[in-house]
């Protein structure tokens, strides 16, 4: 069983939902990423989504885009990110790590080489934002062949048979983008999300994570009532940005934010 499947199984047994924080690797500098990952796990993160910096993050809002720019100022590459995961694994063999990013850095390395190196470093899954299942005919076998899950997005505009197509290609969990827009946008409609999740559940038994628009303990708790996992990104990355000049303060600040979310989610009846 993959690390992600095992994680969701144990959470289900405890009647809890997964909390999945996102940070961009190398932001604001490469040295702080691994300590941040450990601190997030201590604060209650179940799975970590690690952003791979890209020069042209088309699907991201300004907050995560600036995070990429800060990381790229230190030339944080995909290979560097794999090294960070390897370093994280020295003290943590349990928490799944999902790489989230864009296709081009993977293309440069080559699908097969990337998948082998990622699996070897201790990565559990890849969420490649700009590759829909229709174009993933070569990437998928490479990932799956090395035991990596392929996470795909489902959007509010995804309808009908496309949901099935995506679920069939997906493994680990599926990621529902809870609103129209880029990462970091506002206005979240929980009832609308619930309705869509029911539709998705008729196509798959995979757990469903919900992200885009979750910014505090209250929204995290509300979404965790209807989803299997709550993904928090821009809210954390905003903190990283605010503390970029005092990097030592970042891990504790993120831990505090996540602990609040964890508590609110677990307090759900």
């Amino acid at each position: 069983m993959s690390r992600i499947a095992a994680k969701f199984e144990s959470l289900r047994a405890q009647g809890r939902k997964a909390l999945i924080p996102y940070v961009t690797a190398g932001d604001p500098n490469p040295d702080v990423t691994v300590p941040i990952m450990h601190a997030m796990v201590e604060a209650g993160a179940d799975i970590i989504e690690l952003g791979v910096p890209f020069s042209d993050p088309m699907a991201d809002g300004p907050v995560i885009q600036r995070a990429s720019e800060r990381a790229l100022a230190h030339h944080t590459s995909l290979r560097d990110v794999l090294e960070m995961v390897r370093a994280f694994r020295v003290n943590n063999q349990e928490t799944p790590v999902v790489l989230m990013g864009y296709l081009n850095p993977i293309e440069v390395i080559g699908y097969e080489t990337f998948a082998a190196a990622a699996a070897q470093a201790g990565v559990d899954a890849a969420l490649t934002v700009d590759i829909p299942p229709e174009e993933a005919g070569e990437l998928l076998p490479a990932l799956n062949g090395h035991g990596l899950d392929a996470i795909f997005l489902i959007a509010p505009t995804t309808i009908g048979s496309r949901i099935e197509t995506i679920c069939k290609a997906a493994s680990g969990f599926v990621y529902y983008v809870s609103l129209k827009g880029v990462t970091g946008a506002s206005h979240l409609d929980v009832a609308g999300v619930e309705q869509k999740l029911n539709e998705i559940r008729s196509s798959t038994d995979l757990p469903i994570g919900v992200g885009f628009g979750i910014k505090d303990a209250a929204t995290a708790a509300a979404v965790s009532k209807v989803a299997d996992a709550v993904v928090v990104g821009s809210a954390l990355v905003s903190q990283v940005e605010a503390l970029a000049d005092t990097p030592d303060a970042i891990a504790p600040a993120l831990a505090e934010l996540l602990a609040g979310m964890r508590q609110a989610m677990d307090a759900n009846p």
Partner: peptide, 20 residues
Amino acid sequence: GRGHFGPYGGVFVAETLMEA
């Protein structure tokens, strides 16, 4: 039919744009 010129072209966008 899916926009490929040999190995080039295609549709490499986030899911949010696929329907549009």
